[in-house]
Amino acid sequence: MGVSLSPWQMFLTAEPVVKFVMTLLALGFVTVWVILISKTIELSRLRRRLMAEDKILNASHNMDDAFQHLEDEDYLGHGMILAVKAEQERSRDITADRDGVKERVILHLERIEAAEARALNKGTGILATIGATAPFIGLFGTVWGIMRSFTGIAASHATSLAVVAPGIAEALLATAMGLVAAIPAVIVYNHLSRETMQCRAHVADLTSGLMRIVSRDLSRQALNAPAPVLQLRSAADA
């Protein structure tokens, strides 16, 4: 009866080190697909929500109007508006310096954008790690398996190909599994990077929409501000 060289049988009969490498690569392969499914659902929902928020901001006439329509705390725009309102409250006594108010509001919104970018990239870094290291991990398993096969040949003084073939096949399977884990990881990482960039662009659109509202509100305040009262001295007082 011939020796079974099915992948599962080769895994079961592999050296402990090679078996550990194969298990590690299999876990990496599963991780890639789990991240792909979870991040795809997360980013698609976020993209739809950000597009809806952007439409609300474009239709809003002032900050109070925007806040009324984005009062749900799940909205990213809700947190942005709270930051804008907090800065406007702190700058209430210096609203005449409109450029200064705008600059401070932009700094707040940039911090929120940076925090959102970190949240969007969460979980994708492991894909880059798997894509970069999986081939070398598989190669290590292959080198170890072939080395053990040749040492076994030397110990048994057998030169038949039938003796060495199973060990070499098991070792080569580790390289194949490394490629199976690495190739999808690279593809998924690039795909999620493009999706993340689209979401970041929508976040930037929110920032732009809020800044337009802030600018309009400041312009209204400047136009509605009472004119300074000029006190004219009479000739008798001169």
Rank of each mutant, 00 (worst) to 15 (best):
D205E: 15
A174L: 07
W144H: 01
E113C: 09
H202W: 09
V84W: 06
R47M: 12
A171G: 11
M10D: 00
S156H: 04
A181V: 05
R200M: 12
D97Y: 10
L50T: 08
S38Q: 09
I183M: 10
S156P: 04
A165Y: 07
D64R: 13
N58K: 13
M147A: 00
T40L: 07
A154T: 03
T40F: 00
V180W: 11
L43P: 07
L120R: 03
V214D: 03
T175S: 09
G145I: 04
T31Q: 13
I187Y: 09
L192E: 10
L46S: 12
R47V: 09
I187C: 14
V34H: 06
T95A: 12
A174C: 14
G138Q: 08
E89W: 15
D237S: 02
R194N: 12
M10S: 00
G2Q: 11
S149W: 09
G167S: 11
R212H: 13
S149A: 11
L223F: 08
I153V: 08
E53G: 14
V203K: 08
R111A: 03
S160H: 10
A165L: 10
F11K: 00
M211D: 03
A14N: 05
D64Q: 10
R45Q: 13
A181W: 10
A235Q: 07
E110T: 06
M197E: 15
L232H: 06
A171I: 03
M10Q: 00
L82N: 10
A181E: 05
R200F: 09
Q231L: 11
V84A: 01
P135C: 09
D93A: 05
G100D: 01
A165M: 05
M63L: 15
Q9I: 00
L57A: 12
M211A: 02
A158T: 14
A225K: 14
E170T: 08
D205G: 12
N62P: 10
A115S: 15
E113D: 06
A225I: 05
L57W: 04
D74E: 04
L173E: 01
I81V: 11
T133A: 08
A171F: 13
S156L: 04
G138Y: 06
H191N: 14
L161P: 01
M197G: 11
I137V: 05
A204M: 13
A14S: 02
A86M: 15
L210F: 01
L50C: 07
S38K: 06
R194L: 12
L232I: 06
P16H: 05
E170W: 03
R90L: 06
T196N: 06
L25M: 03
K55R: 04
K122W: 09
R220K: 10
H108E: 07
N62Q: 02
G125H: 05
T133S: 10
I94P: 14
L82Q: 09
V101L: 06
S234M: 05
G77T: 07
I146V: 09
L179T: 13
I106R: 02
R49K: 15
S156A: 01
A225M: 12
N121P: 13
A128W: 15
H69V: 01
T159P: 07
R104S: 12
S219V: 01
A158W: 15
E170L: 04
